[in-house]
């Protein structure tokens, strides 16, 4: 019974079914969504950790892979993220009070001089949906703010986003400042103009062209 519910929860995340009244997707109309099923699993005695890792993360991973393969588009990912939020609303208070641990901490921001945030938000949602604590520093983030956040969360991975060729230069300077402050801090970079070659040039640790790639980098580190 619980296994069946977990599989249903995973489907809700994969297909973006938020709650019972949510009309999307049409083929799941009037069915329980991530909101109700998460509550049923908790009421049935399942731990928040198990719900996250065996239900939510599985669904989110499927979305990430489909997005990478162009089988779904941004709207479906956003609906999945919203379903994830509905489930996490039940789990977050438990994580805050118990010793349940997330897979790690991920600090993300769009670099100084750049105000674009949709790509950054997509990565943040996907990473959170895969079981990490995400700290979103927002847009137009200076090196000092990244460093301050990294110091406050030892072991966290930093992620820098940029959409403009001009702000790639800022990304380079911020990466340099972070590495000079503490060379052990791991830095992921991404954004439309970014390439692996640029990542190698500036001494960042990981470049990924899609959110699932970031998840895979984090999973490899935390394994």
């Amino acid at each position: 019974m619980m296994e069946e519910l977990l599989a249903k929860l995973s489907d809700c995340i994969e297909f973006g079914k938020i709650n019972k009244v949510s009309p999307y997707p049409p083929n799941m109309k009037d069915m329980d969504g991530a909101d109700e099923i998460t509550k049923q699993l908790l009421d049935g005695g399942m731990s928040a950790d198990d719900i996250l890792q065996k239900g939510l993360v599985i669904g989110m991973e499927k979305v990430g892979v489909k997005f990478r393969e162009n089988k779904v588009f941004v709207p479906q990912v956003l609906m999945s993220a919203k379903a994830m939020d509905a489930a996490m609303a039940h789990l977050k208070p438990i994580f805050a009070e118990s010793s349940s641990s997330r897979k790690g901490t991920f600090i993300i921001g769009t670099v100084e001089g750049d105000l674009h945030d949709i790509g950054k938000n997509l990565v943040a949602m996907m990473v959170e949906g895969n079981g990490y604590e995400v700290i979103d520093l927002g847009v137009d983030v200076k090196a000092e703010k990244f460093i301050e956040a990294a110091d406050a969360h030892p072991g966290a991975v930093l992620a820098l986003s940029a959409l403009l060729t001009t702000t790639m230069e800022n990304m380079k300077q911020i990466t340099k400042a972070i590495k000079e402050h503490n060379s052990a801090i791991q830095i992921c970079i991404g954004g439309a103009p970014i390439t692996q070659e640029f990542c190698d040039q500036i001494g960042a640790d990981s470049y990924n062209p899609d959110p699932q790639g970031v998840v895979e980098f984090l999973n490899a580190k935390s394994a």
Binding site: P75, A81, K82, D85, D117, I118, N121, M125
Partner: peptide, 14 residues
Amino acid sequence: LMAKGELLEGYVVD
């Protein structure tokens, strides 16, 4: 819209 959590709607307006 994005700030309110209406992510899809915010994306559409973008």
